[in-house]
Computed example of a mutant assay.
Amino acid sequence: MSYPAALVLHTPELWCLTGPAPTMRQAHCHDDIELNVVTDAPLRYLFGGTLAEIRPGEVGLFWAAMPHRLLDSPADMSRAHVGWAHVPVRTVLGWSLPDAGLARLLGGRPVVAPMEAAGVLDLSAFDRWTEDLATGSVERRRIAMLEIQAHIRRLLHSVRGTDLPSVEWDGTDDGVRHAALMARYAMAHFHDPITAAEVATAAHLHPNYAMTLFRRVTGTTLGAYLTQCRVAEAQRLLLTTNATTAAIAVEAGFGSQSGFYATFNRLCGMSPGAYRRRSGSSQSAPDRRN
């Protein structure tokens, strides 16, 4: 199986905005912590191997290094007014979050909760942060960052579990369900060599049809999706463990250390060691996995 880079990759940066939910034609990833609030209509994501919904009046928080795509909703997407904030993961690591909160944040599943779990948070906060960042003022940027940090800390402290609420996908075609089953299988087995046929079997589909369907729903190939899952796992291990890069290559599912280095450099724009150093992660850091 080949692993082309068919995902949309974005450079991590701090930004905020509000507005209608965008159309997302392709899975994408970026090394940020993403905070969303939504009003009027739900946001529906295929996130890693999870179908996730952020309903009006809820907040979503996740590490966006995992491939994710905002799916078309049965509701009018133009009514789903959203507040978006992206904070680079290296910035969040500097906050010295409690181990349990950091593990939840980097665990590969979004945190979804009522807005009040994050404190007094609504779209006006995102408008204020957007204005603060646009001024270029160092002090206003610092104030915005402190407020964002407080909301994220409160949310992680308030939400103890990691289970998502059940999602009713009324009006969504079966293709999304099948693609979600395949993505879930890929997430559970990306550490090992797996074939397209094995992934298709998880959705009870013929491999050729399954791969066409997967690409239609996610906007990317299964190979690229598996590669990004492996890279995201390598990023998590680099950030939260003292494992060597050789051990991480094996743990993340890469067939060789040279292949790991080449793929990581291509997708992240730097070597694994440089990524660890840039993020300020110590090689003696504790393993914060649940």
Rank of each mutant, 00 (worst) to 15 (best):
A186S: 10
E251D: 14
G280F: 03
N242G: 15
A234D: 05
A262P: 00
A210G: 11
F260E: 08
I194M: 13
A202N: 12
E233A: 12
R230Y: 04
L222S: 11
R278Q: 12
T221S: 15
P207A: 11
A249C: 04
T244D: 07
T241V: 03
T227W: 01
R230I: 02
P193Q: 03
G273D: 15
R278T: 11
S258P: 04
A274D: 15
F260A: 06
F190M: 01
P207I: 05
M211E: 14
V199Q: 06
R276C: 11
A249E: 07
A252V: 07
D192C: 10
A232I: 01
S282G: 14
M270R: 09
F214C: 06
G259W: 05
E251R: 12
I194V: 15
L238I: 05
G280A: 05
F214R: 03
A186Q: 02
F214T: 03
Q283P: 08
R236P: 00
Q235P: 00
T263H: 08
A274K: 12
A247D: 12
P207T: 07
V250P: 00
D192H: 14
D192Q: 15
F254H: 09
A247M: 01
A232H: 05
E198P: 01
T263W: 05
F214G: 06
A200I: 03
N265S: 06
Q283Y: 08
L205S: 10
L238F: 07
R216F: 04
A247C: 00
A202K: 08
P193F: 04
A262Y: 03
R266A: 14
A247F: 02
A247T: 08
V199R: 05
A196V: 09
G273P: 00
A246R: 11
T245F: 08
A196N: 11
P193Y: 06
T201N: 12
A197Y: 01
R277M: 13
M270V: 01
T240M: 09
T241R: 02
L267R: 15
A197C: 01
